[in-house]
Design a protein around this nucleic acid. Sequence first.
DNA 1: AATGGATTGGAATATTTATTCCAATATGTT
DNA 2: AACATATTGGAATAAATATTCCAATCCATT
Lengths: 273, 273
Amino acid sequence: MTSAPTTVDGFHARLRDVAEDLPKRMRQCAEYLADNTDRIAVSTVAELAEGAGVAPSAMMRFCQVMGFNGFSDMQKLFRTAFAPGLPDYATRLANLRERGAESPSALLAEFVDAGRLSLENLANSVDSRVLDQAVAALSQANVIHIIGVRRAYSVATYLSYAFEKMQIGTVLHDGAGKLVNPHAVRDGDAVIAITFAPYSEETLELVQQAQAKDVPVVAITDTAMSPVHVDDILALSVSEVDVGAFRALSATLSLAITLAVAVGAARGAEFGI
Amino acid sequence: MTSAPTTVDGFHARLRDVAEDLPKRMRQCAEYLADNTDRIAVSTVAELAEGAGVAPSAMMRFCQVMGFNGFSDMQKLFRTAFAPGLPDYATRLANLRERGAESPSALLAEFVDAGRLSLENLANSVDSRVLDQAVAALSQANVIHIIGVRRAYSVATYLSYAFEKMQIGTVLHDGAGKLVNPHAVRDGDAVIAITFAPYSEETLELVQQAQAKDVPVVAITDTAMSPVHVDDILALSVSEVDVGAFRALSATLSLAITLAVAVGAARGAEFGI
DNA sequence: AATGGATTGGAATATTTATTCCAATATGTT
DNA sequence: AACATATTGGAATAAATATTCCAATCCATT
């Protein structure tokens, strides 16, 4: 009989050891506990089981797989190791900042903060009418063309991935070597253009080509001053709060995934991204 | 009847209010709990009573003096206050099914919420020691190799973009056609691997190759169960809160940009991303 | 399709833990 | 000192929680 872990680190190590080759429910338990280790001390089996999406008895069994006598035995480990230092978000951020103005931790605090502000902003500023229209247009599209370069390219790759997972056909135009192929855009398709200042030529060009063919265009862009804010284009603007000269993409990505999932749902695609 | 405190601060305030003019045993309870507030979440009445040197029933009575229905009621305050985020994941999922699929705006609200929680989580859980080490390792690298496929590919492209903007040499291994080129990794380089469950072969392979050559590896990954959580790898784990079966990248991207900017700063590169 | 073994959920049970109640004790007042 | 009132501890009960067990289901193998 293998003995039970006696430290939190040991617990994680065992979790990894055991992870391979585990039946479905047991795996769910492992994953949930790995992600929510800190809840173990303050939850009941039933609560954890629900969180993991399994029956209480399954969670019970998992404790034994881990080498404990039972749940209480496992919980004891976390209750004694329980470190009170779980201050709230605000003080935690302050702590990160204290590690020195130029330290990576302080920087992380800044970006986290900026991200939260950007998200808040997004929730308030998105025009839900336009969002609805965008989803509708994309749902009916035959092929969805996605273009974005530089910083916007990450967003484009993410959208492309998300759509493909839901078995929605996409073409990712990656402007590599300035080679965008506007001729690939046909009647019945739709275009998603992601562009931020300075608005790249390639992207705008593809947008124009699409408009000339009466293909609907959805744009994810920054301010209302963006060149894609014209009639006919379904422009969704996101303002990211920046940290110094740098700008993250938290809000933009959230908008992107929303778009993808909403379109997937509208098409009745299978879930599971 | 005075109502019970609903926050930890409120609890302490009430404790002070009540402190004057208390019989002996009640006073003992008050003092003990003031000193050991953090144990409340993880103890039984009996344990706390023993700690305070009183009978369990006395502790019980004290809970009522404080305005709670009983001990469980009081404990609930500390158990929920402790774990931020969303305990009842199940109901949220149900909500999503009900309204999210119909209205893109509601879906957006979900993702925004999830993003904010993920960011909070990130601030709480990042190990700043590992972050420092990662930045140090990358700062000294000759070329930084970046690998990530599927969902992680967006993160990889973003990192690649950010580094290039700061004129830091990178190679983006995009596993297209399963073609990763481990031989490109040389002594003096460093690797950033981004991988989430299910952990892709290509990524893990590149990591192994790098380790064989004693090239430092920084990993951005999901749970502590991830296979990159082994010695020698500087693993930064981010747990994104998911919306139904979908998971955004808000927190992951924030961590990525932090890494990039911190490395840039450490190298004294010109800013401007 | 049939078999065996693994895996699972739920009902039944055991255990722990919270809560109430009351008799015993202490405290203060006259 | 005698009384009334407040406080206390412990035993009895109620409730919550963990744990076990078994029948149903799933899965792979033939």
